[in-house]
Amino acid sequence: MNLAGLVTDPYNRRARLQPALLALLPVGLVALIVFPGVESKAATLLGIAAYFGGATWLTQVGRGLGKRLEPKLFQSWDGMPSVSMLRHRDTRLNKITKERYHTFLSANVPNLELPGADEESSDPSTADSIYESANDWLLRATRGKDESKLIFEENMNYGFRRNFWALRPIALLVDMALIVATVWLTSFNQNIQASFAQISMATLIALAVVGVHMVIVLSATKRWVRMAAEAYAKQLLSACDSL
C-alpha cells in the first residue's frame, strides 16, 4: 500500500495511517524543539520523507500486529462482540431488541435458523457457529450501502484503536529512544550553539512532549479497544432493523 492509497482511502487513512502517525508523532515535535534553527528546505524535505516513510512502514506493521492479536482480544472478551451479543445469555442488548434481531436473521439468512435459549445452553459451540454465520451474512449485506455509513464509521474507529493498541510497544520504544537522544543532544553535544538555560528549557519541553505521548500510548488499553468493538457490533446488528 503506497502513501497515496493510504491518504485517499477513508479506511486506510483512519484505521491504518493515523495510528502510525500518532505512534511517531513525538519524533517530529522533538526535532523541532531541539533543533529550532534547522530551516533548510533539504532538511525539511528529508524530515518529512523520513516521517511519512516510517509511518507508511508502520501502517503495515500495525495492521499485521492488529490482525494477529485480534483473536486474543476476542478470546479475552469471550468472543467477537457482534457474535457474542447475539447469545441469549448476553445482556448487552435489550432482550426485546435481541429477539427482533433473531427473528429477522432466521427469516432472511438462507438455510439458517438461530437457536433458542435452551439449544444455546446445551450446545454453546454450535450456537456460536450459527451466530458467526449470521454475522458474516450481515457484513456482506451491509457492505457498500449508503445506509451503512454509520457501520463503516464505527468499523474505522475500531480499526484505529485496535491498530494503535497493537503499536504500543513500538511507540513506547520510540519514546524511550527519544528521551535518551534528547538528553544526550541537549546536555552533552558541544556542537549545539545555545546557552545552558536555553538547552535546559528545550530539554524540559521535549521531555514533556514525550511524557504526554507516553500517557496517550499507555491509555490505549484493551478496554479502550473493546468499547469501539462493541459500538461497531451494535451498529452492525442494528442493520437488522433497516435491511
Rank of each mutant, 00 (worst) to 15 (best):
V174F: 10
P81N: 04
N2L: 06
L138P: 00
L17E: 02
R143H: 11
L58Q: 02
A42N: 06
S129V: 13
G64F: 03
G116L: 08
A15Q: 06
L150N: 14
E230I: 12
M176K: 10
K222L: 10
V174S: 04
T8F: 11
E120A: 14
A127F: 01
G62R: 02
F104N: 01
L32T: 12
S219L: 11
W184H: 10
P124D: 06
D78E: 14
T203K: 11
R14H: 12
D90A: 15
N191P: 02
L86D: 01
V61M: 07
R14M: 09
M85R: 07
M176A: 15
E230P: 09
F35P: 00
A206P: 05
E99Q: 14
L17R: 00
N12L: 14
V38K: 02
L218H: 09
A220H: 10
A42R: 13
L243F: 15
K98D: 04
M80Q: 14
T142F: 02
K145F: 05
L6M: 12
A166K: 01
Q193N: 15
T186F: 04
E147P: 02
Q75M: 07
M156T: 08
P81K: 05
P10G: 01
N108E: 03
A208M: 06
Q198I: 12
K145R: 15
